[in-house]
Amino acid sequence: MSSLSFDIAHLLAGGLVLVSFLELYQDRLLALINIFATHAVVLALSVAWQADIQHAPHLYITALIALLFKAIAIPVALRRIVVKLSIHREIETVVGVGFTMLFGIGLVALSMVVMLRVTPGADPLAREDLAFSLSVVLLGLLMMVTRRNAVSQVIGFMSLENGLVLAATGAKGMPLVVEISIAFSVLIAFIVIGIFLFRIRERFDTVDMQALDRFRGERR
């Protein structure tokens, strides 16, 4: 493998982590959706590059799925939901953005340390990919934990799943059927979550999860 193709793969995967940080930082919903679309585009590029250097044509299909669904269909749908629910307002986070970013950096460092330690014998490209994808997964999880708005939790979930796809393509020999089924399940999850969003909104006039907590009688 030439060092250039390695560098490009490295760059794209690192770009995904960077966009994850952008997501963590962004606190306006519409902008967040845009960043998520960017996230998916970078993912699609990364997967397509993997397809090229691994000579695995089926990965192009994965890239295409990522591009069509995650970079176009889902952001468009989310945008329509947000407009329809008229919640373009600023979103609040639980802990301060600065603290969240610091924690995110810690998570990235952690995943680097772990992944580089446990895969000493593996292909360097796969190692880097795994480390970056674990970071993306952890950052997605962090996003779900720190955000209170249902829409941004959905975006956290979707970007977490992007990390999984990155890991799957980095490992050679991942069957296509698994990727298609993952993509499909994410789509289903999106539909279900979308329906729930509307139902929650209908019932509580908000998609702030705190309303749900109050409804369940949680004490704060």
């Binding site: 998570l107 952690l110 340390v113 330690r117 999880l141 934990v145 999860m209």
Partner: peptide, 22 residues
């Protein structure tokens, strides 16, 4: 617990395990 607390628990467990591994 609330959904967010469940997620936090999952994340804490994951981070803890990764830390142990590291």
């Amino acid at each position: 617990l609330t959904i967010r607390r469940y997620l936090s628990l999952v994340m804490a467990a994951l981070v803890l395990l990764l830390l142990m591994l590291a």
